[in-house]
Every structure is written in structure tokens, then in C-alpha cells.
Computed example of a mutant assay.
Amino acid sequence: MSCQIPPQDSGITLLGGGQLAAQDLDESLTMAPNLIGVDGGANMVLALGHNLLAVCGDLDSVSAETLFAVDPEIVIETPDQNRTDFDKALDLADAPVILCVGFTGKRMDHQLACYTVLVRQAAKPAILIGDEDICFHLSHPVTLDLPVGTRLSLFPMARVVGHGGGLRWPVDGLEFAPWGQIGTSNEVRQGPVTLSADGHGLLVILPRRYLRDVVRVLWQGDPALCP
């Protein structure tokens, strides 16, 4: 059975079937409490005892036990094999911020596809959460108040010109490209750091401990509801 997910006033957590520690999900749910199991991620949700807003994907990795246990009214099958389940899940997610857990740490091709989806779905306030780092697409100008010395990487998925200040190695007016100039292992020289880009394609990578800071700058809803 298929359903639509209504827009949420608080954040959505997407849980994929990749590498996951229980604390990953717990941390995300404190900021984005509406949980969607993306394909095999739904199996982990039930194993950890959490409630589901929806299950989505092509369902090829969802166990029969999981499908039996969940309300069929919340199952959204998206069988299109030309797009990843992560991509299709972002289509369905309408929230002020979308935290994406369990999409890294196993297959490298899956992880690379997720970075591509962040660019393709540039309008979505999505943050990809890994073991050590977080990653988001620079879709609009942001200002981040980060400690001096914080590692901040910029990685281009297309030819794009970056702008900003506050970094040890200046990026203002610098043309990035995956076959040319990249911006990994930069660091904060003085705060606040300002970042923007001409067009889509520039990913920002930060240590995971700054997740809440990034949630605040990407939040697209009522500021009073921002965690």
C-alpha cells in the first residue's frame, strides 16, 4: 500500500541500511524526531524499538518480518531502479531539516551516490552523518561560528566558484572542480566563517560535533522550533 508523508514542523531523520551505532540514531532523533526507515533501515528501526513515520524504498532489503510488523498504511514503495532509495526518500521528506543516518560506512559506491544526491536535491536541508564527519550541500550563504583551528573541507561535485571568509586558506572567488581545485583540510582562521557558492555543487564537510550548529544554519522552518 502507498501513502504520502505530510509536511513536518520538526525535523525528519532518514535511516538507511548502512553502518549504524545506536547512539547515531538517538542523537539524530533529539533534533529530528520524525523517523523514516529507508529500505533496509526499517529493519534496524524495529530492532532498536523506535516508532516509524514511514517506510520507503524499493523494499528489496526490508525483511518479511518488518513488513509484517509495520502498519501497511505507512509503507511507500518506490520501485524506480534508476534512482537510489536515498534520492527517492528525500523526495518524500518535507521538513525544516533532514538528518541522514546509516548511509555511509559500508559500500563506497553507495556513499558516493549519496554525495551526488545531496547536490541533485539541493533544495532539501539535508545533512549526511558519518562516523567522524557530517556533510551538507552549500545551497545558500551560511555563517558558522566555529572555534579557531576547526577542520572545514570544501569538495566540488561540479565546476563552481566559492566565496567566503574566515578560513586559513582563502576561498573567495576561487573556482573549484572535481578534476581541478578542491578544498579539503582547510581550517578556521577566525570566526565567524562565511560561505557561499555561485551555483550548485559544493559540499561542506565538518567534524560531527558541529552537527547542531549546522542544523541551526540550514533550518527552514519556524525558528522557535529549531532544536
Results as ranks from 00 to 15, higher is better:
Val171Ser: 13
Leu206Asp: 08
Lys106Ser: 15
Trp179Gly: 08
Glu175Leu: 08
Asp145Ser: 15
Ile205Met: 08
Pro156Gln: 09
Ala93His: 04
Gly180Asn: 13
Gly130Gln: 04
Cys114Asn: 12
Ser196Gln: 12
Val148Gly: 01
Ile98Leu: 12
Gly180Pro: 11
Leu167Lys: 10
Glu187Leu: 05
Gly105Met: 10
Ala93Pro: 12
Cys114Leu: 02
Val204Ser: 14
Cys135Val: 14
Ile98Met: 07
Asp198Met: 06
Gly201Ser: 09
Asp172Ala: 00
Gly191Leu: 12
Asp133Trp: 13
Leu144Gly: 09
Ala123Arg: 04
Asp145Trp: 12
Cys135Asp: 04
Pro125Ser: 05
Val188Glu: 07
Thr104Ser: 11
Ala177His: 13
Leu154Cys: 02
Pro125Gly: 13
Ser185Lys: 11
Leu203Phe: 00
Asp198Trp: 02
His200Trp: 15
His163Ala: 04
Pro178Cys: 04
Leu154Lys: 02
Val160Ala: 02
Val117Ala: 09
Val160Ile: 08
Leu152Trp: 01
Thr150Asp: 06
Pro147His: 04
Arg189Met: 11
Arg107Gly: 12
Gln190Thr: 13
His200Arg: 15
Tyr115Thr: 05
Leu203Met: 00
Asp145Val: 10
Ser196Glu: 15
Ala197Lys: 01
Leu203Trp: 01
Ala126Glu: 03
Val148Ile: 11
Val142Ile: 15
Pro147Leu: 02
Asp133Glu: 15
Ala177Arg: 01
Ser139Val: 06
Ser196Tyr: 13
Leu167Asn: 05
Cys135Glu: 07
Pro156Cys: 10
His163Ile: 00
Ala177Glu: 09
Ser196Thr: 05
Leu167Phe: 05
Thr184Arg: 14
Glu175Thr: 05
Ile134Asp: 08
Leu202Phe: 06
Ala113Ile: 06
Ile134Met: 12
Pro178Ile: 01
Ala123Ser: 10
Arg107Trp: 11
Gln181Ser: 01
Val160Gly: 04
Leu144Ala: 05
Thr184Leu: 15
Pro178Trp: 02
Leu195Ala: 04
Leu146Glu: 02
Gly173Arg: 02
Pro147Gln: 02
Leu128Ser: 07
Gly149Pro: 14
Phe176Tyr: 03
Cys114Val: 03
Asp109Pro: 01
Thr143Ala: 11
Pro141Lys: 10
Leu152Gln: 07
Pro178Phe: 03
Ser196Leu: 14
Leu144Val: 09
Gly164Tyr: 05
Gly164Phe: 05
Val142Leu: 11
